[in-house]
Design a protein around this nucleic acid. Structure first.
Lengths: 239, 239
DNA sequence: CGCGGGGTTGAAAATGATCAAACGGCGTGG
DNA sequence: CCACGCCGTTTGATCATTTTCAACCCCGCG
């Protein structure tokens, strides 16, 4: 049940590829009994996890494996995917307003590590390493959220889908990309509807910018060509 | 030049209405020489302030007076307003990807306090109060950004404008509301264009939901009536 | 073999953008 | 004081994009 890699497994105490160790490295090293409050979860595709934090932001969910989405829905059922989460991503309590639901939804089968640090609240409130790590989590999510605002506000449907495909390819590290999302999931992420996504995907396919092997698998022959058709960089430059 | 109210001016050390004291209260109390790195700025309507932080997020801009907007623009000039900032709001380094500009723009004349804490970087990295305060800043911004994603992704133009009017009214504390934004500003915030905003404003005016005294001043006779037409709560419930 | 859940495609309708014209307030200069 | 011109706003006509509704296809599964 212990999905969290030990800090010792991660070389210099911090695992470069995932934030898990960054958290354990800071929050767990000087805490006794912390193990008791971490829980391994398995979600099947479509499963939802209510992760409203109680009060302060001291609960975390770390994606260990799979792809998940942070979602909201209005009273009338309209759904919006706020962000996509992959291995290493850390979700802290989603902020749900009254009347707006918030949940984490597995887009593919997922392994997730849940950390409840509320018992350690008092100590953590003064733990600089812990605070720095949670700040980094929030900051990274904020950057992603702001980029997504621009996407939804100022890109048309073709640009949104193209950017989406490019980003997923970038994240998958070139080669064959497998989407773990239905057309409707993509639509809810991009603020479109499923038919529009399908239509645009067909157009992109015809254009040759992306080669589809199946509805959920594709290859990008020339990333630069896609980048040339977008007014935004595909990947955020990491300074 | 010292725009920052002293913590002592704020009752219990924290000013309830603004985050300024929350920051000074934590970051400045135990720092000597901090005064030297704070700078009062005046921006006229339309002025832009490049606030990309150098490296770590240790520079802050606090709105003391006026309304400003955090903006991005694509290479081709399309502008998107990411968020609206009023007195007390704290902006930390905006994350600008290469190819995407980021700036803070005064929508009305503003007084802003700039804090540069990079000289204190070493000490602050271990200052729990400071870290907690910056986390709160990022967290609050994240909540706002996520709410805006839903707005842009899933509300139609009429709903967006209505929500905007209601939120501005809520923020202004009822009574007469004065918009410090042009139609184009509103459009760039809501992911629409200026003509569409104007048209919808006219429709809303005709419907009687909002009474306009001038193009930039209005009153909301019945907030509940507006809320009834929106699938989202107007104000986030503060827990 | 039939059923059901994506996915794709088409036609029609709605929504929002674009282009263009006219309005109104306001400051400047005659 | 008035005329002029500028800028932001409003409004109309038209165009493009996106949604909606519907049909159909494909494929896996009972």
């Amino acid at each position: 049940m212990n999905f969290i890699p030990k800090a010792t497994e991660c070389g210099a105490g911090l695992c470069p590829a995932c934030a898990v160790c960054a958290l354990t490295g800071c929050a767990f090293h000087n805490l006794s009994g912390a193990e008791a409050h971490q829980r391994g979860l398995r979600l099947d595709r479509g499963d939802r996890l209510d992760c409203r934090g109680r009060g302060a932001c001291l609960q975390f969910w770390v994606i260990v494996e799979g792809t998940a989405a942070t979602c909201t829905a209005f009273e009338d059922g309209r759904r919006q995917i706020l962000g996509l989460e992959g291995p290493g991503d850390v979700i802290c309590a989603l902020m749900a307003g009254t009347g707006t639901q918030n949940w984490l939804e597995a887009l593919s089968d997922c392994r997730i590590c849940e950390l409840d640090l509320t018992p350690q609240a008092k100590a953590l409130r003064h733990d600089a390493d812990f605070l720095a790590a949670t700040f980094a989590v929030a900051h990274r999510r904020l950057a992603a959220a702001q980029a997504h605002i621009s996407t939804l506000g100022r890109l048309d449907s073709r640009e949104r889908v193209l950017l989406f495909l490019a980003q997923m390819a970038d994240r998958a590290g070139r080669g064959l990309v497998t989407l773990h999302m239905s057309r409707e999931d993509i639509a809810d992420y991009l603020g479109l509807n499923a038919e529009t996504v399908s239509r645009i995907l067909s157009r992109i396919k015809k254009s040759g910018l992306v080669k589809f092997l199946s509805p959920t698998e594709y290859v990008v022959p020339d990333m630069a060509e896609i980048a040339r058709r977008l007014p935004v960089p595909v990947a955020e430059a990491v300074p």
